[in-house]
């Protein structure tokens, strides 16, 4: 089998006419970590929901180990594990109960379900807190519990929708290690994220998605290499000054573009170029050399930043808050 997950021209138009996904095709090879990277609202979650049989594609089809997500939904459901973006565990129950119920739902008899639950909790490093109520867990523990609930039946393909949303750097790194370990066991992983570092760090291949379309695909290193050179970001007091500087630089032979109040100059060697640029930098608020990364790739392709439309308050905390209110 060539693809563990294959999307063929997936389109999703929501009632009301919003075209959330607009013709997405890709092939995830077995045992690969493949990331959908894009800003909020790019269509990542909708794509995953179609692959996970939660939404019906308006057009197109997708295949999980050869099974159609349109025509063989129950077969697909047996093969996949899904970690939704939301924190879905019952916080008034223990971690153990949450995972155990999940195991039973996949049809394991009591004894085997206990073994499976134990394995999943141990795998995610939660065994020692398994009998505590989930409401006492930290953010990182809750995210790990979500994954434990999704791998209890040993899925061949795992969908992780923003698995580290709202986590601090340490918990995020811990989770990354665990995700890599899962790949090591042959699980094919589709990850969605709007954290550039996460996609770069974890994925074998990345698809950059924007406005429901894949605009670039490849290994992170490849995509970055294609970008070529290094970037110098010059922050100006305002967009008009940035426009002016970009024009000035362009006319003297530089490759420069304005993005809002910022001018981005592409150069072969940033350290050398800085000396030559210095005379133009009068009035600049801040000058920064950017190591070429996926953020730069996205900016180059779309003229926008990945996290331009980041929520004003932390979505994760909000979710935790609403859960507290419920109790």
């Amino acid at each position: 089998m060539e693809c563990a997950v294959e999307a063929r021209g997936l389109v999703k138009v929501y009632p009301g006419g919003v075209r959330a996904v607009d013709g997405v095709s890709f092939c995830i090879r077995p045992g690969e970590i493949y990331s959908l990277l894009g800003p909020n609202g790019a269509g990542k979650t909708t794509t995953v929901k179609m692959l996970a049989t939660l939404l019906k594609p308006t057009e197109g089809d997708a295949f999980i180990l050869g099974r159609s997500v349109v025509r063989e939904r129950y077969e697909v459901r047996r093969l996949i594990g899904v970690t939704p973006q939301d924190l879905t565990s019952d916080d008034e129950m223990t971690g153990w109960e949450n995972v155990y119920i999940q195991a039973r739902l996949y049809g394991y008899p009591a004894g085997e379900a206990r073994e499976r639950a134990r394995w999943a909790l141990e795998y995610m490093g939660l065994l020692d807190v398994a009998h505590r109520k989930v409401s006492t867990y930290s953010g990182g523990m809750r995210r790990r519990l979500e994954i434990a609930m999704s791998i209890v039946h040993k899925p061949k393909v795992l969908f992780l929708d923003e698995p580290t949303l709202g986590l601090d750097v340490q918990s995020r790194r811990h989770l990354w290690d665990l995700i890599r370990r899962l790949r090591g066991e042959g699980v094919t992983i589709l990850l969605t994220t709007h954290y550039m570092e996460e996609a770069e760090e974890l994925s074998d291949r990345v698809a950059i998605i924007d406005h429901g379309r894949i605009i670039a695909e490849g290994a992170p290193g490849e995509l970055i290499a294609k970008l070529g050179g290094e970037r110098i970001h010059i922050l100006m007091p305002g967009p008009s000054e940035a426009e002016k500087l970009a024009g000035e630089l362009a006319s003297s032979g530089w490759s420069a573009r304005a993005h809002g109040s910022e001018v981005v100059v592409t150069v072969a060697n940033a350290a050398e170029a800085l000396a030559e640029l210095a005379p133009h930098l009068r009035g600049a608020r801040e000058v920064r050399i950017a190591r070429p990364n996926l953020e730069e790739v996205f900016l180059e392709l779309t003229g926008r930043r990945l996290r331009e439309e980041e929520e004003s308050f932390d979505a994760f905390r909000y979710r935790v808050m609403t859960r507290r209110l419920r109790r």
Partner: peptide, 17 residues
């Protein structure tokens, strides 16, 4: 309603239940 809003329903619906 709560299962829907908290995402638990999606988790269930992604399973073969």
């Amino acid at each position: 309603i709560f299962d829907k809003r908290l995402g638990y329903l999606e988790r269930l619906m992604a399973s073969p239940v």
